[in-house]
Design a protein around this nucleic acid. Sequence first.
DNA 1: GTTCTCGGCCG
DNA 2: CGGCCGAGAAC
Length: 265
Amino acid sequence: MIMERKRTDCPALPPGWKKEEVIRKSGLSAGKSDVYYYSPTGKKFRSKPQLSRYLGNTVDLGCFDFRTGKMMPGKMQKNKQRLRSDNLNMIKGKLDLNTALPIRQTASIFKQPVTKVVSHPNNKVKTDLQKATEQPRQLFWEKRLKGLRSSDVTEEVLRTMELPKGLQSIGPDSSDETLLSAIASALHMSSAPITGQTSTAAEKNPAIWLNSSQPLCKAFTVTDEDIREQELKVHQARRCLEDALMADSVARAAESTRDMKGRAA
DNA sequence: GTTCTCGGCCG
DNA sequence: CGGCCGAGAAC
């Protein structure tokens, strides 16, 4: 007879993910247990860092408890990797060098609908939760992004990005500003490929033919040249970031040395 | 080769 | 003490 290992569903994970707890049955650590997770595709995960690596930046596992598989809302603050944005650093007016993206927190570690789907007697209810995450959207909702600008800590408005000539917007507002917002939003909200409006009908009459799951821009192609250029930019940006982080840590070290001398004197 | 399992390090 | 991961054992 085989000891059936139970792979249980996990409350904080979407359907398909399974959690398993294996009790050690021999050795010095007998009685201790190990927890594993399985992705819908069957990949096994044996630690939080491993899970985190796999899920990438789309998910903040900060308050996810690996052992229990639940989100622990309270258990977050004593995190040693405190976000630099709180307290001291900001008060002292230093640059915020935190590179983590802000990620919306929900009960699940994954994107999920806020509207709860409940069954009702005599009602047929959509049971496909994946589909349910697609909410109806207002046509040309991107227009509402108009006027939003990014700014640095001194509230100096940052120079906007220059978009490649190949990108052209569609719809009632054809400013570059809206185009940038639309594309940035699309990249942020969906993991599906961003192609732009592939139907030529949409260019002529977007109010009718618009594919609302794609940003308000004409279909575009990305050339190898584009990719190489982008790689170069990323390299340069990383270089700058590296320099900034080094400078920051040097400054920090110097400051703490000064503090200690100050206290001794 | 892959998967399972426990040791042991390190915070 | 517990999370994490290496590496030997098992298959």
